[in-house]
Design a protein around this nucleic acid. Structure first.
Length: 594
RNA sequence: GCCGCCGUAGCUCAGUGGUAGAGCACACCCUUGGUAAGGGUGGGGUCGGAAGUUCAAUUCUUCUCGGCGGCACCA
């Protein structure tokens, strides 16, 4: 039997027949796993249609880590239903199924699927020249371009239905909502369990739980989508801000603070009022309309315009930890990941065409430096180019895109081009980081803007004393501080990098006798900017250690008779490793350097 | 906004048509203890909110607010 089950092209599209320059897909490979999961989607559809004869199958692709199938059904699926479906799938798998391909005419296909308007729609949308393939299995036939394994007997499939949710037909929100069943499948039970355990772990690492346990912040329905920062959370927030600020100062950024509430006059001029009014919080006073700013750029241009700027002032870098508000649909809110009030680590660089390269180059290096410091090493880069609807000449777009490409290339980065994905006003680079659970987060961005400076009348004088319009570069490193804090919390499971963690050290007296001594140490450490607390409870040492570890305090300092006599400082890491220091300065060094 | 699930003490969660319970946390007492839980006692919630059904609702129904998993959205 051949080891090759399918072919794929260079866009990772799979085919059930050999193609020109096709890459063979070998059985049990990563690609084969996708195909196997697609097989399972068909098995799922058979199970569902057997149990619910009126269910109309629509589409069921494989996705990252699994697959789904969307059904139009009369009743919604309960947890018990899912268990039954999963059992049915196992039953079917025990019997085994062959996937037999058959090519039919359009008329035939329409006849076969006449009771399923979704399949009819799909068939009618196919090119007239396109071959229409069906895959037959016992009790189920699906419209499908394949490929499939010839039989489920070719492998062992370990399946698990993971969830059910609503999903619009064809992803269009005016269409009917279907029921989507998510599931996953692996060749071995071991891999399946590992994946399920991973999901569990991700749940455990939930930043909402960590935030509550660590006393960082409060989310309450008294202001849905807005964060109440507690003192420890604010320390964390400020430490992140502090680090980014210091990096920006090295690059001659000028930090500013602009109003959160602005007259809509500004937003009308900038064009945001026309396009995004629905997403702003507004209020009326003095017969005027005000809005909470949804972004900082118009305000920065107001500052730019308030003074005479010449070419000598460029590039001019305005940065702001700007509090913005956006009305997000209720269903979009999600912990700190998606909020209505957030702080952008925003900046706008005003510059000339010639300065684009340098500005973007220093920014990409800045972004990388910051990510690295926070423990993110894996970064993906995308460049988005001119969309169909856009402003600015083709020439200026080409120039700008080439500069962006050159920046990444010169910095030794691989990147993807997302054709036509740029904003209407300019191209951009997006920075996506990968966390320790393999999840990806788009955080940083560099976005060129050929529109807004012109619209708001930004001008500088060139060497010939003529007015020119600057290019504006929007850039953010971590994006929203709120979201970034959620990402770091989940990435580290609460074991935050030492330089930002709210409490670095728990000072633990062995008994009450040593509490005063501990307080003395703490006040000295305070002067040295080490963030410590003294546990003066009357619990035993083991208990105090357990407590400080469970509060995610990375180090503890045990103080008792021995330490006072020998004048040493014994620091215990959360893993139980001990390090001894001779004096408080040495101890301080340790905290400064870790 | 849409589909589904959920909302009980500070936290995690159990439970019932007759006004609630555990563990952790907290307070007090005993213990003055050396590297991940010493022992005892005690306080604390009207079960998200509103309305309805009922002799009686935290438990059933409807509405509403909020959360979660997705979908849609994300300048």
């Amino acid at each position: 039997m051949s080891d090759i089950i399918a072919y794929k092209d260079h866009n990772n599209e799979y085919y059930d027949h050999e193609i020109e320059n096709g890459i063979p897909v070998k059985s049990k490979s990563e690609d084969a796993l996708n195909i196997m999961r697609h097989d399972m989607a068909h098995i799922l559809a058979e199970a569902v249609t057997q149990l619910f004869p009126n269910a109309k199958p629509t589409i069921g692709p494989f996705i990252k880590n699994g697959f789904y199938y969307d059904f139009d059904m009369e009743s919604t699926l309960s947890d018990e239903d899912l268990i039954k479906i999963e059992e049915k799938m196992r039953e079917i798998l025990n019997e085994g199924r062959s996937f037999i391909k058959r090519t039919v005419s359009k008329e035939e296909a329409l006849k076969i699927f006449k009771d399923n308007k979704y399949k009819v729609e799909l068939i009618n949308n196919l090119d007239n020249s396109a071959e229409i393939n069906l895959y037959d299995q016992k009790n189920f036939t699906d419209l499908c371009k394949g490929p499939h394994h010839s039989s489920t007997k070719d492998y062992e499939a370990n399946i698990k239905i993971t969830s059910v949710s609503g999903a619009y037909w064809r992803g269009i929100s005016t269409n009917k909502m279907l029921q989507r069943i998510y599931a996953t499948a692996f060749y071995s039970e071991k891999e399946l369990n590992k994946h399920l355990k991973n999901l569990e772990e991700a749940k455990e690492r939930n930043h909402r739980r960590l935030g509550t346990d660590m006393g960082l912040f409060l989310l309450t329905d008294l202001s849905a989508g807005n964060v109440f920062w507690k003192e420890k959370g604010l320390t964390l927030y400020q430490n992140i801000e502090k680090f980014i600020r210091s990096e920006q100062q090295k690059l001659d950024y000028k930090e500013v603070k602009t109003p959160e509430l602005v007259s809509n006059e500004l937003l009308v001029k900038s064009g945001h009022w026309d396009n995004f009014q629905e997403n702003m919080f507004t209020s009326e006073k003095d017969n005027k309309t005000f809005a909470l700013k949804p972004m900082n750029c118009p305000c920065h241009i107001v500052l730019f315009n308030s003074q005479l700027i010449t070419y000598k002032d460029l590039p001019l870098r305005y940065s702001e930890f700007g509090k913005c508000h956006r009305y997000e649909p209720s269903g979009a809110l999600n912990g700190l990941f998606r909020v209505r009030g957030f702080t952008q680590d925003d900046a706008h660089i005003f510059c000339t065409d010639e300065q684009i390269y340098d500005a973007c180059n220093e920014t990409t290096q800045l972004i990388e430096r910051v990510y690295k410091k926070f423990g993110f090493e894996k970064i993906k880069y995308n460049i988005s180019t001119k969309p169909e609807k856009s402003i600015g000449s083709q020439e200026s777009w080409d120039n700008a895109v080439n500069q962006l490409k050159k920046v990444l290339t010169d910095n030794g980065k691989d990147f993807k081009i997302l054709d036509g994905e740029g904003a209407f006003y300019g191209p951009k680079i997006e920075y996506t980081l990968e966390d320790s659970l393999g999840r990806e987060w788009q955080c940083g961005t560099i976005q060129l803007d050929f529109n807004l400076p012109e619209r708001l009348g930004a001008r500088y004088k060139d060497k010939d004393d003529k007015n020119q319009t600057p290019i504006m570069i929007h850039r953010a490193v971590v994006g929203s501080l709120e979201r970034f804090i959620a990402i770091i919390l989940e990435n580290t499971n609460g074991w935050l990098p030492l330089f930002i963690t709210p409490i670095q050290l728990a000072i633990l007296p062995v008994s009450e006798k040593f509490v005063d001594h501990c307080n003395d140490i703490n006040s000295k450490l305070k002067d040295l900017d080490v963030r410590a607390i003294v546990d003066s409870s009357d619990n035993k040492l083991g208990y105090k250690i357990r407590n400080s570890v469970s509060k995610k305090i990375p180090y503890s300092l045990v103080v008792g008779e021995k330490e006072i006599e020998t004048k040493t400082f014994n620091v215990r890491s959360r893993k139980g490793e001990n390090t001894s220091f001779k004096n408080i300065e040495e101890l301080n060094e340790f905290f400064k350097n870790n």
